[in-house]
Design a binder for these strands. Structure first.
Lengths: 216, 216
DNA sequence: GTAAGATGTGACCCTGCGGTCATGTGACCA
DNA sequence: TGGTCACATGACCGCAGGGTCACATCTTAC
């Protein structure tokens, strides 16, 4: 947690520091990010920085917290009653909010990506300890319920596909932001529909049910 | 490329240096890897290191080249006649060889993972310039041919699924090495079959063809 | 034996890092 | 006016990084 001194700062100064820091972490990863650069670009003295934050990690964890708060705002209202919707609808909403967040906050998305990439680093565990334990579990529960309701084949490996579905979210985001568009627009919805159709029916030809999900 | 001096070295010394370096890059990522540590662990003087290699990048690219050569040996003989097999068989073989390589060369796999994670870093482009242009193209061609032969639905987005299939390989490897086993054994084949079945039929319930792919 | 060339060596250079601290400054209150 | 307290400052510290270089030591050939 930042020190009181930081929160006593005028808001524009605080925002400036955060913006500069986000930019820095998006460009350089935790280890290579430089406090010297951050203070230079923020126009504050290095000593001041350490009046605001304990250390580099303190700043980073604070930014991650800001990101998490911001991310919650993207969640669909459908998620408030997960039992009332089928799993594919829920996954669609989750993916949508994640892509929208990534598209509208590319620097946060970049930081997450860099973090995910450095799974060995000490900072990774520090961050994940705060936020991640629930993600895979959530998809596992989702799958189990969906199987019970007959929406999903009962013979799948739940753990494996909880992992796959959680991770494929990142893949779809990467594909979308890299090859389709940098912004959240109607093509995003098309991309998600394509993926959901695949998730449901696969890419194999001999499947009478396929193409149902795609209405493009 | 390493200098002549390096190749004039006795083989055991060369191997030792490579082993130490691989270990270092597997643990620390390109930027954080330390030449000081490498020379210390190899028992050579720092000056000697720069008689062998131009710089850190020179060493790293050389190791990547070694990895690529080693990886080729894992490729299935089926890949010599890709036209004679259906796309799911080919994907199975590609995934198998990738997992086997990762399982038997965990440190190389770790280096790749770290590299993939730092897509912004200069070293990433340097490596990918050598090796990557063909990967997505390969899967695109594979998909187009498969569609022409009626193995794959004609309505899919080829570019998107070339990307997904290439990337999901990494996901399956990660899942396998993290949750199933550290070695290449029969469970690996089961994991791949589960994935192929998913790729072909999806996870949706209303699919008369599903479960065909799984014979466990 | 000795000259020449290839190899080996580690002290050393510069740079940038995260982090500290003595000192300065200005607002507020008595 | 003087004291106090929150905040600002940048020179400075120790350290580790990549990379260099003058010199020592081996190998080979005549």
């Amino acid at each position: 947690m930042p020190k009181d001194t930081f929160f006593n700062l005028p808001e524009d100064k605080r925002t400036l520091i955060c913006d500069v820091a986000i930019h820095e972490f998006a460009e350089y990863s935790f280890d290579r990010a430089s406090i010297n650069r951050i203070v230079a670009k923020s126009g504050i003295a290095k000593g001041s920085f350490y009046q605001y934050f304990e250390d580099k990690q303190d700043l980073f964890l604070y930014l991650m917290q800001l990101a998490a708060e911001k991310k919650v705002n993207y969640l669909s209202p459908l998620m408030h009653n997960p039992d009332q919707h089928d799993i594919f609808t829920l996954i669609r909403e989750i993916y949508k909010s994640a892509i929208q967040f990534a598209a509208e906050n590319p620097e946060y998305a970049e930081i997450s990506k860099k973090l995910l990439a450095n799974k060995g680093a000490p900072i990774y565990r520090e961050v994940m300890a705060d936020s991640f334990p629930s993600a895979y579990m959530f998809f596992e529960t989702l799958l189990e319920n969906a199987i019970a309701r007959g929406e999903v084949r009962a013979d799948i490996d739940v753990k494996m596909f909880a992992y796959m579905i959680a991770s494929m979210n990142t893949l779809v985001i990467e594909y979308y932001t890299k090859y389709v568009a940098q912004h959240y627009d109607k093509k995003m919805l098309e991309t998600i529909e394509k993926f959901l159709d695949f998730l449901k029916y696969g890419i194999g030809e001999n499947n009478s049910e396929s193409q149902k999900g795609v209405k493009l």
